[in-house]
Amino acid sequence: MFQPASLKLDSPSPVDERLRNKYIIIYFMIITLSFLPVSFFEYFYIRYLWKEDTYWIFFLFIPLNIFINLYILQLGALSFSFLFLTIGKLIHYPKEGVFIRDINDKDYRYWNLRNMIKKWPLFIMATHPFPWLKNRFTLRFFGVKIGKRTICDNCWISSEFVEIQDNVIIGMGSTILSFGIEQDKFIIKKIIIKSDVLIGAKCVLLPGTRIEKKAKLGALSYTGYNSILKEDSIYIGNPAKLKEKGVKENF
């Protein structure tokens, strides 16, 4: 909620440097296209409200105008990146697995491309000051399933291969990674977090983690690859180990 000055809560989407320069044109195209609806809106706003004798109406609605413009920009960026993503998916459908970390590998290349396409909408989402249409809305657009009443605005969530159900609380500064890089291997695996799960502050979930209902993960701990946290139990440590089965309230 009160994120540090240096932190922009952009979800983890690194792009390989070798591919960044090659496909930078797509990134700029999305940025310019997303400003088009904003300029259209602004044109009509000035055209119809800037009139003699009624300048006060124009000035009265300027704050609202800026507020609306911000969300038009965000939605524009989202829809254009969605368009590019669907084209990308038609060419090469994203799938889980272990790949080679090399730009000639098709899966790795297209994963980087997808991250590049998502960068701009995620950046706007993370930087604008209003608390609406943040992480949950944006990530739902990219196909991440996030349920009702979840607190997930102060953490980094990977933008694909994540499923989060209802009533989940994810602590401040936690990171949910559905991808991992191990030497020359590149791993993508789905993370599933079931309902009523509580994840503490500054946790790290590695790819393939599966958290069952009502499980609790203590602060400052991380889970291993493909680890399963069982129902109604508390996990703490590096990597997370079972501390207690069957949670009871001691008060």
Partner: peptide, 16 residues
């Protein structure tokens, strides 16, 4: 009147 102890550390958070 039991002493309040916690088994795990979670986080602070706010709903919309």
């Amino acid at each position: 009147n039991k002493k309040f102890e916690i088994e795990y550390v979670s986080s602070s958070g706010v709903y919309k």
